[in-house]
Design a protein around this nucleic acid. Structure first.
Lengths: 361, 361
DNA sequence: TAATTTAATGTGTTCGTAAACATTTTGCTG
DNA sequence: CAGCAAAATGTTTACGAACACATTAAATTA
């Protein structure tokens, strides 16, 4: 078993050409006769050549500008984690010539998004990572980037038809389905269940609807429809009084309410409300390990959180772009991160740690 | 903000010495006057020099032999996953000059272990990864390796006092604690619960006892002792008839048995038994995503599996050794992998897939 | 103080690849 | 078939660090 590492030079020797020719074949730079190209390709195949990524990155010695188009974490704290992931990746990958430029927009202001997206586009980066939270407004940019041949990676929100280099995030439908299971498991007896969409317009946020659909389908597929009554509500904290009243009305008018499934990262708002009213029998399941959510998780007010791994999403986005740009690797078009079930007893393994290390197998 | 990457050459210029001198300072090779050394160190600090790991690995061009001392997966399928992780890591890290030599022993035969460990030791590898399932018999080897200055990494089974380069695995106590929570959550009413240790001597497997302790402490700390009656049993499949009889006796004599917590990867044995007897109301929680476990998880016979991520353990072990040997990075002494809660609805994100992606925070 | 050892520092080559540059071969036109 | 452009192929250097080797300066000895 010869384990010797095959180099370009070895291929060149075997093909009786120079390393330059092999290089041209490898990179499809042309200027190689068809006959020679075929021969070299065949030998590359035969010898099972694998490029030395270190030498490649070292030799090419390029700087890759990656643009990150992300919502302002000071406006919505949820975006703090992706930002942290992006920055961690930038730090880890700096040595490969990766530099990330952040374009931060207001997640509640479409114009801000468009403005930043325009600026980004004129800056002509080598790659783009973004969370396309404004569906309609993002589409024309996808076209521009495709024309300019700038690869882009989506995270958090999936838009299948835009043909990104990669999408990184969760399967919203399946996460709703999972939430159904968790509620059913902890609530074997007949009761009412509330789906709460908080602070987001479901009409403009397809992923929330997918979660709801998955959730409902869990009960439907398991023939539990007769056992549970599923309610839904859309709440908005912009008016605190209305928020409280709406929630209170539902709770008061639904005495057998057993669980609440919060489709956004705002489960802590429900938890706060229930605590204030000393309601203890209603179970909450929500998303994301934000500090206020973790607080109520540790108190037991929230039973489970499904981790969307937002930091990992940011990290992986940059990582995939690097794999593609620097190492010319193929990257998976869809990269679903696991649906981590987080509860008080295992939370500390998932919470964001400065020294977090990411690893890909 | 100058983002230029600092090279040894830059340091040398600033310090008005040659790159060789800087190199000697960086590697503490001596032969440098104290005055110069201090100056160079100061400049390294000032300029925030970070070595280019690719250039380093490329330049040194060393082959690192890593020895993996692992149980035979054909005897216990559990070890298939760590082996796969090790092999995946070897493939990924081959380009950094990592070669892994496997020393496979019979997990039920101490002599086999000793023999392979001896062979390994005489081969003088540059690093070692092992799962020290035989506590007493491993201790003298730790001493030998320490004398020979060969770093070793433990996985799966932790031995704190041997001072390994790193331990990779789970917090057994906490995983038992988590199992307690999962059972409690799904079984709010008073009932009996069985802890089942299958196919392993608890006297020789401290981690199983830790799991049991964590499990019991969950109920104790939450003042649930009066509500649940916790039983325990040690079963062994070596005699199938005895196994069935023991299990049957417990089930028959405990009409209010609500859940079974299996501390090993053999939950499927319990599931098989319950199915044969058409018992559906007893919930099972176990460990590890082995095919038979997944089979019963998907059928709903097993409620949850706690994933020990054995493939990740193998992968990480090699990875940590590489970080230490090739890149001279500091590696964490203890690396606890997350306690993944796996159920039918999220299992496919955790099962071993050739292109599996591991992500650690 | 010249000779010689030893400490201190400098220089050049190497790793595998990329890419600029240099040379040779081919094909075509007049 | 000379002349020349274009295509094909070969050669060299650079990337950043490691390390062997070469050189210089300082210290010691005769």
């Amino acid at each position: 078993m010869k384990n010797k590492i095959v180099r370009i030079k070895d291929i060149a020797e075997k093909a009786k050409v120079s390393t330059g020719t092999v290089d041209r074949v490898l990179h499809k730079r042309g200027r190689v006769s068809k006959k020679v190209e075929e021969k070299v390709l065949k030998i590359i195949e035969e010898m099972d050549y694998e490029p030395n990524l270190m030498a490649r990155a070292l030799g090419s010695n390029k700087i890759y500008q990656i643009a990150a188009l992300i919502p302002d974490h000071e406006i919505d704290f949820y975006w703090h984690a992706p930002k942290a992931g992006i920055e961690k990746a930038e730090k880890d990958l700096k040595q490969y010539g990766i530099i990330v430029q952040q374009y931060v927009f207001d997640p509640y202001d479409v114009d801000s998004f468009i403005s930043k997206a325009n600026k980004l586009t004129t800056d002509k980066p080598d790659g783009i990572i973004l969370s396309p939270i404004f569906y309609r407004e993002t589409l024309p940019f996808f076209e521009k980037w495709k024309v300019a041949e700038i690869p882009f990676v989506l995270f958090n929100t999936q838009i299948a038809e835009c043909e990104p280099l990669s999408y990184i995030g969760q399967d919203s439908y399946q996460s709703g389905f999972l939430a159904g299971k968790l509620i059913h498991y902890g609530q074997p007896d007949s009761c009412s269940i509330l789906i709460a969409h908080i602070d987001e317009e479901t009409s403009n946020a397809a992923h929330l609807l997918k979660k709801e659909q998955g959730f409902r389908n869990y009960f439907a597929q398991n023939n539990l429809d007769h056992q549970y009554k599923i309610l839904r509500v859309e709440l908005n904290r912009s008016n605190a009084a209305v928020f409280m009243k709406q929630l209170g009305d539902i709770i008061d008018s639904t005495p057998d309410l057993g669980s609440i499934f919060v489709t956004t990262s705002k489960a802590h708002e429900i938890a706060k409300y229930l605590e204030q009213r000393y309601i203890k029998h209603i179970k909450i399941i929500g998303y994301d390990l934000l500090p206020p959510n973790l607080y109520f998780l540790n108190k037991g007010t929230i039973s489970f959180l499904i981790n969307q791994n937002p930091k990992g999403q940011g990290y992986w986005g940059i990582y995939q772009l690097t794999d593609s740009l620097v190492f010319k690797k193929e990257v998976p078009i869809i990269k679903y991160l696991p649906l981590d079930i987080v509860t008080k007893e295992n939370a500390n393994y998932y919470v964001d740690d400065e020294d977090a290390v990411y690893l890909d197998i």
